[in-house]
């Protein structure tokens, strides 16, 4: 792939230019600089377009849809209690309308992020427990014990804007990337396999976390380790 082809692919889809493009970018300093600028532009674009959504939008849609859903029952006496229950549930779970990108887009962005930084997996840093505790604390978690040996830890920009913690855990089954994202709330766990990587996005505190590895078993093992090692403030993982 030449520089022109790389730029064509990157401009068409900065989040997922494809493995061949990323290989070229890793070997070409000019294209690496170009790509960095492009991703910053993309983050600014996403941030600017992410306007606040009217409060209760989803609830109003459901409210308006309910009579249609229950038309076949013919009587409001049958569907009104269900509608009321739904509204109460929806109001009590008003965290459901997430701000920012969708969980799928976030998961795909995380995969691109991990693919973009292969050196973080190769790194063998000495990361102190104190640094790790601070990283989790910034993300709303109290680290009760070391979840696994840590070979890399640094703050990093997140897909769609904001910052999180990029940590590589060295588990007995293999390395797994952990991204703590305090500004990216998700309402439910999501698993995705893309570009040869498994990612699991989970609610964590007021935000979320993502675990990424080639093997799904490694991801699931790390999930269990984290559950034991971290106590999250706010919502639970």
């Amino acid at each position: 792939m030449n520089c022109l082809e790389f730029r064509r692919l990157a401009m068409a889809n900065p989040q997922h230019p494809g493995p061949a493009a990323l290989e070229h970018e890793a070997a070409c300093p000019d294209c690496a600089r170009f790509y960095l600028g492009l991703r910053r532009q993309e983050e600014a674009l996403y941030q600017a377009l992410s306007i606040t959504v009217p409060d209760g939008l989803a609830d109003r849609i459901l409210l308006l849809s309910r009579p249609r859903l229950f038309d076949r029952f013919g009587s409001a006496r049958l569907w009104l209690p269900a509608l009321a229950a739904t509204l109460v549930l929806a109001l009590s779970l008003n965290l459901m309308v997430s701000r920012g990108m969708s969980p799928e887009t976030l998961a795909a962005g995380i995969i691109a992020h991990v693919r973009h930084e292969p050196e973080t997996l190769a790194a063998e840093q000495q990361v102190s427990m104190a640094k790790l505790v601070r990283a989790f604390a910034r993300s709303g978690g109290d680290l009760m014990s070391e979840p696994a040996q840590v070979s890399y830890a640094r703050r990093c920009p997140l897909p769609g804007g904001g910052h999180g913690e990029h940590i590589v855990l060295k588990t007995p089954q293999g390395k797994v990337t952990l991204i703590l994202m305090p500004s990216k709330p998700v309402t439910a766990a999501l698993r995705l396999f893309k570009d040869g990587l498994n990612v699991s996005v989970l609610p964590a505190g007021e935000g979320s976390l993502a675990l990424v590895a080639e093997s799904d078993a490694v991801v699931r093992g790390a999930e269990a380790d984290l559950l034991r090692a971290v106590r999250w403030r706010g919502r639970q993982t």
């Binding site: 959504v53 939008l57 989803a58 459901l62 969708s102």
Partner: peptide, 14 residues
Amino acid sequence: FEHLVRAYSAELFR
């Protein structure tokens, strides 16, 4: 359907 509304209404609105 409820899941769809909650998952996608915000991004569709934007």
